[in-house]
């Protein structure tokens, strides 16, 4: 191995993987064994090994979502040993490495569980609910062209930095998966507070939060009870402060907007 740890020995692991042929069919946990897993592998590379084994054996490989494998696209979404993205803090599944596990371990791998995230197949879930929430108002209504010069809107660095921190959400859904209530508040709050903080977001500030929360509820996510699992499991460290901002924005909008509907 080229890794720094020349003593790291290959591992043999038992995997309990959720298998479900499609959206409607029932699923179950199936046990698999993988051998000679290098500690330098990423978790998804370990699953690649499993899938190559399965293909060679003429069996259906395990479906799971992934793409960039560098922790930014938000595609990967595995619930590993009872936690979103597994045991390592601030880490997506694709950046989780097998050195966090030991030889002989049994690893349970499940899809995100939420009524708003139906399972497509095996470990792949449908997170389009998130897109519909953004479509309800997670934008600034500016058409292409005609924007004023970028420096015409000075934004204090502190505000800009805070907005950036909220904007780093990768939309993976770990917050929903980890939440006892399957609530999407952290996700929604990240977008709402990013735009509420910035001057560009002001014109639609009230309608945005009203519509996004309405859509969030319509999708069937649970309500926030301030447990904090979401922020603790968030791979990019979105703060609970955003949820407070969302609550405040919602209350203020409902109390003062001209929307009677």
């Amino acid at each position: 191995m080229a890794g720094s740890n020349p003593n790291a020995k290959p591992m043999n692991l038992t995997l309990n993987v959720w298998r479900q042929p499609n959206r409607t069919a029932p699923g179950k946990i199936v046990e698999y064994h993988v051998k000679d897993i290098s500690p330098d592998m990423s978790f998804l590379e370990m699953l690649d090994v499993l899938n190559e084994d399965l293909l060679h054996a003429g069996q259906d490989p395990v479906a799971f979502d992934h793409d960039c494998r560098e922790g930014i696209c938000g595609s990967c979404d595995l619930f590993i040993n009872g936690r979103s993205h597994g045991p390592e803090k601030g880490t997506t599944t694709c950046q989780l490495h097998m050195r966090k596990f030991s030889d002989g371990d049994t690893i349970t791998i499940e899809p995100w569980r939420a009524s708003a995230f139906p399972v497509n197949k095996d470990l792949s879930v449908d997170r389009s609910a998130f897109d519909r929430i953004i479509q309800a108002g997670g934008y600034v209504s500016v058409n292409t062209g005609g924007a004023p010069d970028g420096n015409e809107i000075p934004i204090p660095k502190e505000i800009s930095d805070r907005a950036f921190e909220a904007a780093t959400c990768i939309s993976c859904g770990a917050c929903v998966a980890a939440c006892k209530n399957a609530s999407a508040m952290l996700f929604v709050s990240a977008k709402v507070s990013q735009l509420a903080l910035l001057p560009q977001g002001q014109p639609e500030r009230k309608t945005r939060v009203e519509n996004m929360v309405a859509q969030m509820d319509k999708e069937g996510f649970g309500a926030c009870s301030n447990i904090g699992s979401c922020a603790a499991e968030c791979p990019v460290g979105i703060s609970l402060e955003n949820i407070a901002i969302l609550n405040r924005e919602f209350l203020a909008a409902k109390a003062t907007s001209n929307n009677l509907a």
Binding site: N16, T108, A114, A232
Partner: peptide, 16 residues
């Protein structure tokens, strides 16, 4: 209702 199918393994004690 937001989670009708639960997890086989659930370790919320690690995060809350």
């Amino acid at each position: 209702a937001a989670r009708t199918q639960g997890y086989a393994q659930w370790h919320a004690e690690k995060n809350s």
